[in-house]
């Protein structure tokens, strides 16, 4: 058995992340205001801001492999169906992917027979309202931000927006994403077509 864990088996490690990630006492975690006090550590704030900006630019530049590499080996990208979901375990989700499933998604969109990819499309992400919610003794950082994504597909524009919650691990010169939780504010509106890559 390799040491690398798969989704479904990472539940235990993720549960350790979850309590500090989400205010368990609050049922509607997706719609609460940030817990952060005004930033005091501006160096850290700016470093995180640059990281989040770079991540969203990777999406818009369709640099899928680099995007996946921002995640830790046991990192998870999760977009819950409902804001009150505190963990993906056993819950329907809009997205729930570890790096392996992310690479399935990447390989699909890069496949010459991914017919839906023949249409011209592009996204434009804006990330803002960044708040550092918690810095753990182990160096784990909880960050909350707002995003707005516009997507052009053929002649249509769509909008998605909501809250990112990143659980970041420090590396030597940057961060790795342990968990990215994406609460789409329009997660429960009917989808005109579907979402083909991460938001």
């Amino acid at each position: 058995m390799a040491t690398k864990k798969k989704i479904g088996k990472v539940a235990e490690s993720a549960k350790k992340v979850a309590p500090s990630t989400f205010e368990r006492a609050m049922k509607k975690v997706g719609v609460t205001a940030p817990k952060a006090k005004p930033a005091t550590n501006w160096d850290l704030h700016q470093e995180i801001e640059a990281f989040l900006f770079r991540q969203s630019e990777m999406l818009d530049a369709k640099q899928w492999a680099a995007y996946i590499d921002l995640f830790a080996n046991d990192g998870v990208y999760w977009a819950p169906s409902l804001p009150e979901h505190e963990h993906w375990d056993g819950k329907p989700a809009i997205f729930i992917e570890d790096r392996d499933l992310m690479s399935v998604r990447m390989k699909r969109v890069l496949h010459p027979n991914a017919w839906s990819q023949q249409a011209e499309w592009a996204t434009n992400h804006i990330v803002s309202n960044i708040a550092i919610e918690h810095v753990g003794k182990d160096g784990t950082i909880q960050v909350r931000s707002r995003f707005h994504m516009m997507e052009m597909r053929r002649d249509d524009l769509r909008h998605f927006g909501g809250i990112y919650r990143h659980t970041l691990k420090r590396t030597k010169d940057s961060f790795l994403i342990q968990l990215q939780r994406v609460d789409l504010f329009n997660a429960q509106a009917a989808y005109e077509y579907v979402l083909q890559v991460w938001v």
Binding site: R108, S116, V194
Partner: peptide, 11 residues
Amino acid sequence: SPSTLVNADDL
């Protein structure tokens, strides 16, 4: 799901 790896090409 809305991020379906399958139905995207059906639709």
